[in-house]
Design a protein around this nucleic acid. Sequence first.
DNA 1: AATGCCACTGAAAACGTTTTCTGTAAATGC
DNA 2: GCATTTACAGAAAACGTTTTCAGTGGCATT
Lengths: 327, 327
Amino acid sequence: MTIGIKDVARRAGVSPATVSRVLGHGPVSAELRDRVEAAVRATGYRPNLSARRLRSQHSRTIGLIVSDIRNPFFTALSRAVEDAAYQSDMRVVLCNTDENPEREAMYLRLMQEERITGLIFAPTKATAERLDHTLLDFPVVLVDRAGPPGRHDCVVIDNPLACGALIEHLWEQGYRRIGGIFGNTSSTAVERHEGYRAAMAARGLEADVRFVAPNAEAAEAETARWLRTPGRPEALIGSNGQVLLGMVKALRNAGLGMPDDMGLAGFDNETWTELVGPGLTVVEQPVLDIGRTAMMMLFERLSVPDLQPRKVVLTGRLIVRGSTTRR
Amino acid sequence: MTIGIKDVARRAGVSPATVSRVLGHGPVSAELRDRVEAAVRATGYRPNLSARRLRSQHSRTIGLIVSDIRNPFFTALSRAVEDAAYQSDMRVVLCNTDENPEREAMYLRLMQEERITGLIFAPTKATAERLDHTLLDFPVVLVDRAGPPGRHDCVVIDNPLACGALIEHLWEQGYRRIGGIFGNTSSTAVERHEGYRAAMAARGLEADVRFVAPNAEAAEAETARWLRTPGRPEALIGSNGQVLLGMVKALRNAGLGMPDDMGLAGFDNETWTELVGPGLTVVEQPVLDIGRTAMMMLFERLSVPDLQPRKVVLTGRLIVRGSTTRR
DNA sequence: AATGCCACTGAAAACGTTTTCTGTAAATGC
DNA sequence: GCATTTACAGAAAACGTTTTCAGTGGCATT
């Protein structure tokens, strides 16, 4: 049916082995190499990757499991990973879990069946804790979210530090009653929450928080509810870009202006954050670096499998905009 | 090394063929089926997809090639495609071309090597014209962008109509000198440009357009330049979400307010469009429908290969917001 | 009691490659 | 000038499945 390496071989008057060697940089004389290359062009031959992977026993594929590809943080991440992968002549298979542990399990199974060479993974808290690298036959690099210490390689940002910077900035701007809305599925939100709590406590301020599913709809609903309760905060922080987006919508619907009616700050320097109202104060995460670093760590682990698990901590950058600067 | 179907077979005391049949819904007695299933669980067996694909000669994989995964239109599309695919127990392999024909060619090659069962593709003008389904051994559905008429299945929106609605609305709001910024790589931008031109001509208005690479940076630069020239328009339209984003930034930098200093409208109802300034007037595309329809068409074509190429035209929805309502 | 059919099972071939193993001729070392 | 290495080429095995082919035994039909 479709043309295979044998057809090319016949046409070039050589054995299939020789064709394979030409394609795979084996030792072949110049003359035969020319003949084979001509035959490849003439026949329009395309290698069958399934056969190649089966025989050679490596898939040259890396898996990338994220919680939501519609979140710009993860799309940027996936671009970084993909670009790095293709430079090493590797494919990427990308999956969305919607923060759903069942889907995470299903995709982990898929990754095993694909016999991927390595995985980059942003897991929910639940599976991060359960995740056992001894059951997986490929290395894993956790990204954006850490698991239990010392179990997996991971690359994250310093969330407590970043949250501290956020609170310090709000404090300097004169905000005192500062509330927070945090996601309820990721270890990252937990860390940010702890950073928030510590920074508040250090200044003798009282913490006031809500937890929501980390998407805009949930965050908007929760914020709207909060705004209607008496004694609401003077400023709010949101634990990621999607949450922040929901909060902005709620403020807008409530007719509250930033920074005076309410200060607002959060995480992820998404394109729209500089455009909305007076601009949103955010902590920018070095997404591209996170992606590239994750790939590097993966490759290192592949070449030296029994390295100690390493944790790389990058740092976010505070971008101050009008949503929190009231004087 | 890793456990295969033979190991399962040995453990269950049956032949590999029987195990395969249990896994693949073949006819097997209840007793053996139980033994095999127990053995599968006990061994933790995971099928090898490469081997399976090689032998069975179908990959159960559909390809999705888009121009930029960071564009929310395409991420939404990819979610729709992915969800539909997984419901039919198919995988998706997703690729970014950056509107670069070389990358398009490379990914088309990859798709052949993966022996995908079908492709959903948003091509640049250049490759849409060259694309020859007779050279590809899988069906293709073009999406968002049409090729030469009658060559491929495709699903698009009615761009001239949508552009007409935009111009009509601006006309009603009293705008007369209306300029447009259009992408220079896609057939979609061409259609929108033509729709704009026709709608302007129908009202005796003079067209005034610029073409840019369809990304925010290029659009911002071009808009900034345009704003500095004398006799600038009273309103502008942008041919997609990224272009629109760049235009907003340029207006903001120039200190021009909407809708009075400048009216602004365009395509793609991205999350931020309702948040920026008085809200942006946009044509919303039914992305989810586009994705689902594309998958449906692909499946239909797979079951009835020699259908005539069909073009499905959906319609956009005009969402009027403050950026163009000045009274 | 012979025949045909059905439901199930195993042996073996097949999928399209890469890799190992074997062979040959030329080149090199003494 | 002989032995040994080197450089290349082909035959055949192997990768882990699915599928074809050929039974086998039981049951129903004549």
